[in-house]
Simulated scan of single mutants.
Amino acid sequence: MGAIRAGAIYFLIVFAIGFVLGSARVLLLEPRIGALAAVAIELPLMLAAAWIVCGGILRRSQVRARRGADLGMGAVALLLLLAAEFALGHFGFGRDMTALFAAYGRSPGLLGLAGQIGFAAIPAVRCRWLSSRGHP
């Protein structure tokens, strides 16, 4: 499995988990504690899930064996995530690109964007972590 396929699978699994956790965040947490606190609670759970999912994909793929494929996997996953976020916002909630970018200007949006960047970096971090521990 190459970087593109690995990135797509990584995105799909983590997006599905994020859809469930995001729904719980919006419906249960945000009304009680506010958007920023709700995102701050959800984010570590999402990054932990991404770490675990990424590890499973790396064990079953050729990504670790190919130089730069870990970065490609993360880039593919991030591009798919941003596209899915825009599509969901546009078709699901009637938001345009301006509204999407405006959301990144507020604290919850910035924290979420930092999490998305972390999500994209996990394949490279995991590959380097495994290499430093002597795993091929």
Rank of each mutant, 00 (worst) to 15 (best):
residue 37 A to H: 13
residue 62 Q to E: 14
residue 60 R to E: 14
residue 1 M to T: 04
residue 44 P to F: 02
residue 65 A to R: 11
residue 74 G to P: 03
residue 126 R to P: 03
residue 12 L to D: 06
residue 91 F to R: 05
residue 46 M to T: 05
residue 45 L to P: 00
residue 77 A to Y: 09
residue 127 C to G: 01
residue 95 R to W: 15
residue 100 L to N: 00
residue 16 A to N: 04
residue 75 A to Y: 07
residue 66 R to G: 04
residue 4 I to P: 06
residue 119 F to P: 02
residue 28 L to R: 00
residue 8 A to T: 13
residue 127 C to W: 02
residue 40 A to Q: 14
residue 85 E to R: 03
residue 58 L to Y: 02
residue 74 G to C: 13
residue 63 V to T: 08
residue 42 E to Q: 07
residue 108 P to I: 01
residue 87 A to W: 12
residue 129 W to C: 00
residue 97 M to D: 01
residue 53 V to H: 09
residue 15 F to D: 11
residue 90 H to M: 11
residue 59 R to I: 08
residue 114 A to P: 02
residue 77 A to F: 11
residue 68 G to E: 10
residue 8 A to M: 15
residue 46 M to K: 05
residue 22 G to Y: 09
residue 85 E to W: 11
residue 63 V to H: 05
residue 128 R to I: 01
residue 31 P to G: 10
residue 103 A to R: 08
residue 80 L to M: 11
residue 45 L to D: 02
residue 56 G to Y: 04
residue 72 G to W: 12
residue 10 Y to L: 12
residue 44 P to W: 05
residue 32 R to I: 00
residue 129 W to D: 06
residue 16 A to F: 10
residue 21 L to V: 00
residue 38 A to M: 14
residue 4 I to R: 07
residue 28 L to F: 09
residue 119 F to N: 02
residue 132 S to T: 00
residue 124 A to Y: 10
residue 77 A to N: 06
residue 74 G to Y: 09
residue 37 A to K: 15
residue 78 L to D: 03
residue 5 R to V: 15
residue 117 I to S: 14
residue 48 A to R: 01
residue 75 A to D: 07
residue 44 P to G: 04
residue 110 L to D: 04
residue 5 R to Q: 14
residue 124 A to V: 12
residue 80 L to A: 06
residue 51 W to A: 03
residue 97 M to W: 10
residue 49 A to L: 14
residue 135 H to K: 10
residue 8 A to W: 14
residue 77 A to T: 01
residue 6 A to H: 11
residue 122 I to R: 07
residue 28 L to K: 02
residue 36 L to D: 07
residue 117 I to G: 10
residue 96 D to Y: 05
residue 52 I to Y: 07
residue 42 E to R: 08
residue 70 D to N: 04
residue 73 M to F: 12
residue 46 M to S: 10
residue 69 A to P: 01
residue 87 A to D: 11
residue 18 G to M: 06
residue 107 S to Y: 06
residue 117 I to A: 14
residue 128 R to D: 09
residue 134 G to C: 04
residue 32 R to N: 03
residue 124 A to F: 13
residue 64 R to D: 15
residue 5 R to P: 03
residue 57 I to L: 13
residue 101 F to L: 15
residue 24 A to K: 01
residue 95 R to G: 04
residue 36 L to M: 12
residue 135 H to D: 13
residue 112 G to L: 03
residue 107 S to V: 04
residue 122 I to V: 12
residue 101 F to I: 01
residue 65 A to M: 08
residue 128 R to Y: 03
residue 95 R to M: 13
residue 110 L to Y: 06
residue 52 I to T: 00
residue 49 A to E: 12
residue 61 S to N: 06
residue 31 P to F: 09
residue 50 A to F: 11
residue 9 I to K: 12
residue 86 F to L: 05
residue 104 Y to C: 01
residue 127 C to S: 10
residue 64 R to G: 15
residue 79 L to W: 09
residue 50 A to N: 10
residue 12 L to T: 14
residue 29 L to E: 04
residue 67 R to K: 03
residue 93 F to P: 00
residue 64 R to Y: 08
residue 108 P to F: 07
residue 6 A to Y: 15
residue 30 E to D: 14
residue 98 T to W: 09
residue 39 V to K: 07
residue 51 W to M: 09
residue 32 R to K: 12
